[in-house]
Design a protein around this nucleic acid. Sequence first.
DNA 1: CCTTAGCACTCTACGTACCGGAGTGCTAAA
DNA 2: TTTAGCACTCCGGTACGTAGAGTGCTAAGG
Lengths: 344, 344
Amino acid sequence: MPLSERRARILALIVDDFVGSAQPVGSQALVERHRLGLSSATVRNEMAALEDEGMITHPHTSAGRIPSHRGYRYYVSSLMPERALTPQEQFTILHQFHQASRDLEEWIGLAASVLANHMHNLALITQPRLIEVRLKQLQLVELLENRALLVAVTSDSGVHQRTIDFPVPVHQDQLTRLAARLNAEFGGKTVAEFPVRDTTEPLSQVEAAVIAALTDLLLKEQAAQVDAPVVEGVREMLRQPEFGQSDRILDTLDAVQERRLRDAIPTDALAQPGVAIVIGDENREGPYQDMSFVLARYGPAGGAGGIVGILGPTRMQYGDAVAHVRYVSDVLTELIREFYGEAD
Amino acid sequence: MPLSERRARILALIVDDFVGSAQPVGSQALVERHRLGLSSATVRNEMAALEDEGMITHPHTSAGRIPSHRGYRYYVSSLMPERALTPQEQFTILHQFHQASRDLEEWIGLAASVLANHMHNLALITQPRLIEVRLKQLQLVELLENRALLVAVTSDSGVHQRTIDFPVPVHQDQLTRLAARLNAEFGGKTVAEFPVRDTTEPLSQVEAAVIAALTDLLLKEQAAQVDAPVVEGVREMLRQPEFGQSDRILDTLDAVQERRLRDAIPTDALAQPGVAIVIGDENREGPYQDMSFVLARYGPAGGAGGIVGILGPTRMQYGDAVAHVRYVSDVLTELIREFYGEAD
DNA sequence: CCTTAGCACTCTACGTACCGGAGTGCTAAA
DNA sequence: TTTAGCACTCCGGTACGTAGAGTGCTAAGG
């Protein structure tokens, strides 16, 4: 049920003020700061109503109001002004990409830094990957007489490596020939498309070992839906007043380890296109229940892509966050398109 | 000038107690806890003397004593009991390595985790590298019509990649032939040994671009004396009481970023073989001046190697730290010897 | 019926005061 | 040289009082 216009306006002001100051906002302060044509008493009545509707709460009896998770949700869904970055802001960001070298990993790291610095919160970006992983080319390098390094380049330009132990000695010549043969046979294929060998015709032990390693490597690669994300700005985020106590910092520090974060990213919120916002207890996992994600997919439709987003306390500048995430996602999409070529 | 035996004994007890409890230790507590055949007054006299010699201090007038950096230095140099890990401890650690797969990077990460968990402090390990980087094999993979991925495997089994843009279109066939040719020509050589081309005979633009990229890549690789280390246990360390205030945590968090840490590792202390201890203000850089490093090199003599160590507050179990670092360093050395083969 | 002035009440943050405990430094005697 | 004794110091915790910000309610006014 929608709020009355005045009530909604007051909610928006409470959110704005609280996001800015991190202090509970009182009726009188609100009236003065925004020159409302109302008395503080009226605002108090509205606040009481907003509290009944679950949009705001008190930390304690005689404190000002702070938005509840529900209030934030209402705010971002109905009240928040849409805003795009100004040309000036866009330029500042683009400029940094032009400074960097043409390297995908570097771009990802840079994008994360940019986001983190602008939003004073944690930025996370997963490496771009294709849904379908195709083998592009493999290489075999002798390390010891019975061990080799398998290097596989996949269609998303990822380079993967693994050592293989053979039951028999091998030489580089042999490996090079084998690599050429396997490239011809498996190149350009997904694991699912790998030709099944006629089992009656026994493979050489070496060949079998390489194929096994290759298959396993690509399967593992494909299985990992999302890589552990690149994370920047942990410190920026922890500087926010909500992390004032050190035990809170330590717990959060734990929660934003790349590996834990990978599983915590609420990917289901990204079913629809556009920027998704996941607030507080909309997160399933405990440690993130008073934080919010602002997430978007990046990458050309059907091509290699990943997730870019911001994680911070629920008290967050959602409008700016959305604008920044959207813009950075667009920039990354464009860079990837360039990198992999239009044709892909 | 050496301390009298009794005075040294008292210093050792102060260090031990303080390391254990993080509380300043008073004369009476010391006497009671260790059943010294002395009165607290005598101990107080000795403490006053130790303070004159700069070995201990007070936080304030009526507090117990804590070791100064100088006191720790004396302790580790002259008083600390040498200790090796018990067979039981050794087994616990070795066991974890046997669980892991045969992958060098994984070993490094595992070793760091083990160290961090046992010592409740930060563990850091640099990737193993050779002083001399030799090209083992290179591979060229077409990405776009005028862009390729250069993958170079170096003699320390490192896999390095870089994209190359060509002024002209290329095909995979051409790249494969070129790669084979360059492998024959440059394989097994260091950058310094790369044959200089006769400049009068012009290279193809493609070949020139690849050689330039390869040279640059190996040079960069060689130039970085130490990689940014793998770091584990940040949270373990920050849990120590010396990091009780949140601003201290944030500052430290900053100081232990991989990149900053790389430059802060006091490598010069590792000139002599064995385990090096760098205490407090023996560190040049500010943020580490109330922390200590316990470091060792690992890797077979003349072979690929790196640095393994612990970073924590100066109040640290130095004896255990040394024993653990030494043992893990030995284990890593053994693993590397196995991995690269004895012959190397 | 909505708005608002007025007022009693509540809770926090902060500063002051106070006290017990642990520890020191000094002195004088053993 | 060691030690008992004692006065002194400082921290940490608790209690208390106060100022400030804010609330909720009531009753009067438009």
